[in-house]
Design a protein around this nucleic acid. Structure first.
Lengths: 337, 337
DNA sequence: TTGAAAGCGTTACCAG
DNA sequence: CTGGTAACGCTTTCAA
């Protein structure tokens, strides 16, 4: 939980521009000139001011400065887990895109907990000019906390027109993945979904549809934590419940990688004994053995699109033009299937 | 490069508290009361104000608010590459530690480029209350840009007392790594250092000393980019120059993982044909095959210590108490050596 | 319960 | 080249 802010302020009262002015025997404005490197100031005076400022340990207040020169954009980026490479990749792309615009990005990691998400939502509106995030709370709540602020949702459909959202469309990709497995002769395909808070994931829906389209029974599904360990345990569970499964599709690459490792541990070779296809197409997938086949999307594009959409929202008055922002995920074949 | 900030402001002039007051037919203070949920206000009035605020799309200025209630702490976290899991782990820990204090963290990814680092330094002082970072520029420059602000350096010795720094001490760990390799019968041990900007890395120094202590020739060293691909190419280069090498120590785990993959590609089995020991002890090391042996440090602790040190700096007037902040790295044996 | 006035720390705009 | 004055948008204090 977010504790009382500012509990640990520095003891000494803040040194202001006035203190520096007094100490240097000049006026505030002159101090301002010296510090902001204006040229309309005498060399000696400037040096004297700079010295005084340094001596006092003066640092301009970013609030006062921001108040008068309204030229700073700060974006809040809210993600459930920075250690999940998917979000790291998105965040890295967003940071870069923001940097080219001179924008600052405050990152909030909610540890995938509703409580932290709410805490963040609570404070964020007074800290940033716009929000990009992967939220799991209901839209009504989002709405309440972000009123009047541009919000871009990633990996989630925005049902209200209040929010922009960037959709991840993996329907065709998942279809292709199942088709590939079927073509390879697999007739029993399982899925390691993620442990959802409520409903099954959309990726699961895609899987079910694709399986049905190929006459495959989509019944072998277990939930997994979104970690490699979670993927390992889930695979174990899946195989013990459905020993005839010879291929698995997973909610994401992290889970797939855990499954890969579990398969290895139990002496199955991949893809011969068990084929594995993940989702996300993380760079990480290329580092494991065998390299991971995945329904891959462009995480970089996701981050960049989000920043671009914020820019659009900022310059365009509501209501939102209903641009359909989509990142498509496509099957990328590699060693694991 | 960081472009002109705020180039894309919203067209419509900002709605202020005064606009809301006028629209609701009350005074500023009443609006303030309504929005801040004070109880000294009539229910109807409050509702009317809230409605007006929503209708106008009003959002309080964080600068004005920050100016009057000085209770927000924002830390700048500067790292060379968020996609490098080492920094991701440190960042995640720092974010979490900051969150428990109610602090906000602005993350800057400098893409490992001096130019971006300078750009960041340039703007950061007017955006945050303290800085935590992995910098490569000279201290004099750091000093100039962060005057009067608490600064905590990670993974780098602070030579001046102007900065706090958290040291990574891997001397014993590297010694143990070399000892382990020697005990396994390796007599020709190479190192994949990182491509440094200037001098060889301190890790290389540790390696040289450890090798000497064990009567091993430490001459087989090549530089590598800090990526898996970089590690792969570097291993190729090392082995072609020194075909008798049977074990390598690497600057970090990412490079080691690349080396692992390259070894596999060229048909060498690890650790039989080639032993590999990395540095950092990333979680990622447990996902590759074989699991990576590494001189491991507690990245989480690094991030947490940095935040704690900022807190200390904030409450303690300079000059800095010379606390020696260290994170020790120790050999963690696994499959690759 | 509400409003008027006084800042918070800084920079912009004019005078001098 | 320098200083006075007026914002910037908000909250706090004190009266009404």
């Amino acid at each position: 939980m977010v504790s009382t802010p500012g509990a640990e302020r520095a003891e000494p009262r803040k040194v202001t521009i006035n203190d520096v002015a007094r100490s240097a025997g000049v006026s505030r404005q002159t101090v301002s000139r010296a510090l902001n490197d204006k040229d309309e100031i005498d060399g000696d005076t400037k040096q004297r001011v700079l010295d005084a400022a340094r001596a006092l340990g003066y640092r301009p207040s970013r609030f006062a400065r921001g108040l008068v020169r309204q030229d700073t954009m700060t974006i809040g980026l809210v993600i459930p887990d920075l250690l999940n490479p998917f979000f790291t990749e998105v965040a890295a792309a967003a940071l870069e895109a923001a940097r080219t615009r001179g924008w600052h990005v405050v990152v909030y990691d909610t540890a995938d907990r509703a409580e932290e998400e709410r805490g963040t939502l609570q404070v964020i509106s007074s800290q940033v000019d716009a929000v990009i995030g992967y939220f799991s709370c209901p839209e009504s709540e989002l709405e309440a906390f972000t009123r009047g602020m541009p919000v871009v949702l990633i990996g989630r459909e925005g049902r209200s027109t209040r929010f922009s959202s960037i959709r991840i469309d993996g329907e065709e990709g998942v279809h292709a993945a199942v088709a590939h497995l079927v073509a390879k002769g697999h007739t029993r395909i399982g899925m390691l979904d993620h442990h959802t808070r409520a409903e099954p994931s959309i990726r699961h829906t895609w899987f079910t549809a694709a399986a049905a389209a190929h006459g495959v029974d989509p019944g072998a599904v277990v939930g997994a934590d979104q970690t490699a360990d979670g993927g390992g345990s889930a695979l174990k569970e899946l195989l013990s419940a459905h020993p005839d499964v010879t291929a698995v599709f997973t909610f994401n690459d992290i889970i797939a990688i855990g499954a890969l490792r579990e398969a290895r541990r139990t002496g199955r070779s991949v893809p011969q004994d068990l084929a594995v296809i993940g989702f996300d197409g993380l760079q990480l997938g290329a580092l494991v053995e065998p390299p991971l086949t995945s329904v891959a999307l462009d995480t970089r594009r996701l981050g960049v699109l989000a920043i671009e959409q914020v820019a659009r929202l900022l310059s365009e008055p509501p209501p939102l033009a209903i641009t359909d922002l989509v990142v498509h995920a496509e099957l990328r074949l590699s060693g694991s299937a």
